[in-house]
Structures are given as C-alpha cells and as structure tokens.
Amino acid sequence: MRPFAYARPKNVRDATDIVTPMGVAGQGGAWLAGGTTLIDLMKLDVLRPEQLTDIQALGMDEIETDGETVRLGARVTMAQAAEHPAFKEGAPVLSQALWKAASPQLRNVATLGGNLLQRTRCPYFRDVSKACNKREPGSGCDAVGGYNRLLAVLGTSENCIANYPGDWANAAILFDAVVETRRGRRGRAIELGKLHRLPGDAPARETVLEDDELITAIELTVPSWARRSYYLKVRDRESYAFANTGAAVALDMDGDSVREARIGLSGVATTPWRAREAEAFLRGKALSEETAMQAGAIAFEGARGWGHNDFKIPLGQRTVARALLETARLS
C-alpha cells in the first residue's frame, strides 16, 4: 500500500473543501466510507490515493420514509438498509439484494453510497501486472481472450468486459433511484440509471461523477405493489459469492396479467442494468413460463459472450424467467 494522508472532517462542507480529486490513474484523493472496496484495492496496489478523507463523522446515516419515498443517507450501511421495514416488507427485492451480498461483516461497514460505486472483480483489473484499460488506460484488455467466466456479456466493448459486481444497484434502479451528490458548495441529483457509464473506449471512467464529488443520499420511489418483488441471485455456492447471474424483479399484477414489470440484471453487465425492453414486452401479457422465457430472451438481446462466460447468456435468460415466475407466485 502506498502512503497517504488521512483526515476525518466533521462536516460535509469541510470535507468537500479539502478533498483532492482522485483521477482515473487511481491517484489523488479518495473518500473513505466503509473501505471494503477501497482498502482492498489499495492493498493490491490497484488504487494509490495520496489522501483519504474519512467521512465517518459526517452523519448521512439515516433512513427516512415519506409515503412512497424512501430517502437513504449515503452512509447507511448495507446491513441497516437490509433490515429496514420499508424494504423488508415494502420491497423485499431491495432487502434481499443487500443481505444476499457479501458477508455480514462486510455489510456492517459497506455503505450504500460506496456500494453503488463498487469496483469490478475482473481478475485482470485486480492484478497490476496484467493489461487493463480500466486500471491503466491504453494498456489493453487481458480479459478478452483470458479467464473471463465471471465477466460481463452486456454493455461490453472490445476495450473492457469487466462486470459491475454489485447487487443492490440492480434493484434500486427499478425504483426511480436518484443519487444526490455534493461537490464543494454545489449539490446535484443524478438518476441512478445515468450514474454509470458504459466502458466504450474509456473504461477507466466508470461514472459521471467528478473526481471529488461525494454521494450524500439516495432517494427511491417505492410503490405499494413493490411488495411483490424478489431478488434471485444465482451463484456457485449458497452464500458469500458474487452473482453469476441475478435478476431483481418487481411485478404489478392484474390477476394473471402483468400491469407493470420491472427487471434489473446482476452479474452480467458492465454497469447496473435494467431490462426495459423485456419489461415493455411483458406489459399487459399473462405471465407464463413461455412469456417469462421470452422476456428473458429479450433481456439478453445483443448480449455477447467472451468464451468462458458464454453460459451467462442462456443462464441469464433463465434467471429472468425463473425470477419472474417466482415473483408472480408471491402474494
């Protein structure tokens, strides 16, 4: 780990004043929240911040509900949010996508703000001796043609096939999530669906955030019908593993027919992913194994496999179908 200076400011204004931006080379300043991604990657020498600004004294750790609106401070931990009745009862998919992620120890410190920005597990990103355009722009992508079983099939480019490894963003994205940020004196609100960038030809720049911009809160609109929602995480072992594929599903049903379906995909895409075409296809249709499989197929139109991860396309389709069918069975 490279040396850095550490600060623990006591309010947001100070915090946003002092931070020095961390650029795409992984240097400069960084926000320290739970640290479960940051410290991990610093130990691997992937990130080399010169300053850490610890935001633990900045509050931003409350969950407020007002009708359909759920507002979460960016420092709310994954464990806290998973237990909140607004999720547990009001939208199980939002709770399940949290408790099915990582381990209790990690969820106790990992924050929602940090979780949205979780970095890929691509082994070539994590190994500084290998080529990675995300870590070192222009160095190439060793994952293409390499070991890529766990990597993305949607939203990829020849420059980068690293997947977004998180779960919760793919559920939050179903509920018109808006991310509030602060940069210096200025704040702004960004739709979660527009927070991340596709890798294209610049995979190092993963989000639209400025280097010194701080996520302060996340706001969701959770309709009452979101009680019928479910997060299916398909993985090699039963717990404490990343998703091979996953589907976050919420269904508004009218008898057997779908009034509205919302579908997010995990483990398969380079960014948090919402399958809007599949949602549109289901609108007004009766949900059956056949329509569910069709929706799955639509969700993966345009997907591209890279060898080891080819299976994620058929598996992803089946994951969507199964998640739809299981969600429909919920009362």
């Binding site: 550490y6 006591k10 309010n11 947001v12 004043d17 002092i18 302060t216």
Partner: peptide, 23 residues
Amino acid sequence: MSDDEPTGISRRGFLQTGALGGG
C-alpha cells in the same frame, strides 16, 4: 447531514496531530 455543524477546530489541515476521537 451536518453541513452547518461547527467544527470546533481551526479547519487547518489534514490530520497530523490531535486526538482523533475529538475531531
């Protein structure tokens, strides 16, 4: 959020001295 909370300290610098628990 504690934007306007007084820091009680001199807004001078990255940490080098002082008890952290106190800010």
